[in-house]
């Protein structure tokens, strides 16, 4: 099958170097997915994902692969929100994220929002594989439509494995053509921004945070394993970020 879409895969590998800081032996940009190393805090390496052009469009196949070695610490952010747009070529766009973190490695994956613009059709798949003893902060946020706009079709599956065992497997589907009831009182209830924050820390194995409700429509809950998930819904991206930031600050504090 051929599509007229763009195919691009960006790659990052983070390794602990001899001086106890994190080096980036692999930092491969590809087409619209540009990676820049920026100043990190302490011994972590910080990478910014820069959208060199808008996308993904219909038919595009984007992928980001990140690997964090033993003892290395990587922080990933992005310069701006990613906007899924309708393309000239038919068919869905795909965005695949593959993350591996070795024992003692730490990844903080904190990109900006994904915005599903009207008429777009995007399928996101994120798979995180953690070795026992790895640490993770993973945030994803989806915004349904630009201001005042209906959303496109979006499905997003997030799978997190720890030591070969699945900690979390979740899929959200919304927009035109999604299974019925997606905007109703069991699923999104008219909210236009949804987000998840997954935090995995070995010390949660001893004592995991208690479940708690965060404001109007968000909750923190311990997973089966040394991990917690924050699920949040909000009317817009700004308020969503505030809830997730507060939750993360409380976990970090």
């Amino acid at each position: 099958m051929t599509t007229a879409g763009v195919r691009a895969t960006a790659r990052i590998a983070a390794r602990l170097d001899g001086r106890g800081t994190t080096a980036l032996p692999v930092l491969e940009s590809d087409g619209p997915l540009a990676l820049r190393r920026t100043r990190g805090r302490g011994d972590e390496a910080r990478v910014m994902l820069v959208g060199a052009m808008s996308g993904p469009l219909g038919g595009d196949r984007f992928a980001v692969e990140a690997e964090v070695g033993a003892g290395a610490r990587l922080h990933l952010g992005s310069a701006a929100a990613t906007i899924a747009l309708p393309g000239q070529s038919k068919g869905e766009a795909r965005y695949d994220v593959r993350i591996d973190v070795a024992a003692g490695g730490e990844l903080r994956w904190l990109p900006e929002q994904l915005i599903s613009a009207q008429g777009s059709d995007l399928c996101v798949s994120t798979r995180v594989d953690l070795a026992a003893g790895a640490r993770l902060v993973f945030r994803e946020e989806q915004v349904l439509g630009r201001a005042g706009e209906d959303p496109g079709r979006l499905s997003s599956r997030l799978t997190v494995r720890l030591d070969g065992r699945t900690l979390l497997d979740q899929e959200v589907a919304c927009g035109p053509g999604a299974p019925g009831g997606w905007d109703g009182p069991a699923v999104l209830g008219g909210h236009r921004a949804l987000g998840q924050l997954v935090v995995v820390r070995p010390e949660f194995g001893e004592r995991a945070p208690e479940p708690r409700v965060l404001g109007e429509s968000a909750a923190l809950t311990p997973l089966v394993g040394p991990a917690v998930l924050v699920t949040a819904l909000a009317p817009d991206a700004l308020r969503l970020r505030r809830v997730l930031d507060e939750a993360l600050a409380a976990l970090d504090g």
Partner: peptide, 22 residues
């Protein structure tokens, strides 16, 4: 294997369940 199982989630059911339990 079990990875082929669907994983469709409902954020309001998850959040509402935690609120209800409290």
């Amino acid at each position: 294997g079990v990875d082929a199982l669907p994983a469709a989630s409902a954020p309001l059911l998850e959040i509402g369940a935690e609120a209800h339990a409290a």
